[in-house]
Design a protein around this nucleic acid. Structure first.
Lengths: 229, 229
DNA sequence: GACGATTTAGACAAGACTGTCTAAATTTGT
DNA sequence: ACAAATTTAGACAGTCTTGTCTAAATCGTC
């Protein structure tokens, strides 16, 4: 929007840097204290900036909050799609590959600073800003889950998995892979790497017990066996 | 608990009723507005009580908050253990019985008013009151998950399931059964009953594909089969 | 009906916070 | 080095909130 032939003459250099620094500090304070408890003086101090500069950049506590959520959503989406691009489409060792994918997803998008902050802000203030979080819902789960479901469908089509509904399978994949991190997430903590790996390993094993091809290679029998057990 | 013979003359009747009414109103306001944003005048108004009465009963905004969390934790635990008692130890139709159990657990303990409020308060303020929420962690997941794990171990011992680690299985059961409710939970919403039933149905089906005995009926073989698959 | 305890309404002081304003200091591009 | 833009520190009014206090009203029980 700030177009110019010569480089951005208006906000030369430190301008954008300060904007980012304010956003980052605000994210931390909003998460720790909640919207109502967040203190603009504190945000300014943590950003290493005067209070007036905060107002110059974002005008308003509410506008600042919106900017924080939008920034976090964008950053997380970038990370998630970059990670989805590493989904094992033609797996060598399916179990190991899916575990690696799950660990990457958790470490790069969910357990990192941005992911943790965005999750907390959504949980905390989601009901207060319906449109803002409807936007997140569309660009977040509404986009990433179908993308992952498509990858699972591809694995099923390639004969690696037996899946009825790829969308359900994608959601269950997340549920399984994060099953052992729920309590930590609830309390706002960050799981250690070995906890992430263990949860992912157990989750993927169970996932493959449910959806993996049975050892017998030729048998392509469908899942009608347990229908009315 | 409330003895009738020469009833407690101290708080005759309306006293305890007002205490509860305050706790309930405070729970709602704390959830909506967060601790910092919660307004004691508003709590008093929603409780149908004067502000001074709130202070008479609970003394302090922070003490009031603690009382709310403790009350919610107790109530939820009662509900959870009552529901765990309905776990299908000797199932007729294992799939249907587990689905029923999962739906009961969700509707009576997680999606109801108390469960929703407690979850939100833990997410929102958990980091600010470590001891309080350590207490919740012990009495909540720390107690209920082993209890459910024990039930799954019993089903495995009875030959209904093939489970390596009952604790992992219990956590994965939760993850699967709630897999399709995560987004709704994130935003503080309450899923409709049919959504709960669908998520539970899909979750239990996948759970049984992973842990259910293979169709062969008479086989009571122990769980050594898939040990190192 | 009377008595003791509880509740109520309202006033109140003390403190905190937001958002604005101003003038000085600093940075940035030329 | 100069000029324009940006940043800073501090003061400021206005509002809101908490927690206390007091005197009147209400409730429950005998």
């Amino acid at each position: 929007m700030r177009a110019s032939v010569s480089p951005d003459t208006f906000p030369p250099r430190g301008h954008e840097a300060k904007r980012l620094s304010i956003i980052d500090a605000a994210a931390g304070v909003f998460c720790r204290e909640g919207f109502a408890g967040a203190n603009i003086d504190l945000i300014a101090a943590e950003a290493g900036v005067s209070r007036q500069t905060v107002y110059n950049h974002h005008g308003d506590k509410e506008k600042l909050f919106m900017a924080v959520v939008r920034d976090l959503t964008d950053r997380c989406n970038v990370g998630i799609f970059a990670t989805i691009a590493t989904f094992p489409d033609q797996p060598g060792d399916l179990e190991a590959d899916l575990i690696g994918f799950a660990v990457r997803l958790n470490q790069n998008c969910i357990c990192n600073r941005d992911g943790k902050f965005l999750r907390k802000l959504i949980q905390t203030e989601g009901e207060r800003y319906p449109e803002l979080f409807a936007e997140w819902r569309e660009q977040g789960p509404g986009t990433t889950l179908p993308a992952i479901a498509a990858r699972f469908a591809r694995l099923a089509y390639g004969g690696y998995l037996t899946i009825d509904d790829p969308d359900v399978a994608a959601r269950q994949f997340f549920g399984l892979v994060n099953a052992e991190l729920q309590t930590t997430f609830m309390l706002g903590g960050t799981p250690r790497e070995d906890e992430v790996v263990r949860s992912a390993t157990n989750g993927v094993r169970t996932f493959l017990r449910a959806f993996g091809k049975r050892p017998s290679p030729g048998s392509v029998k469908k899942h009608t066996a347990l229908a009315n057990a």
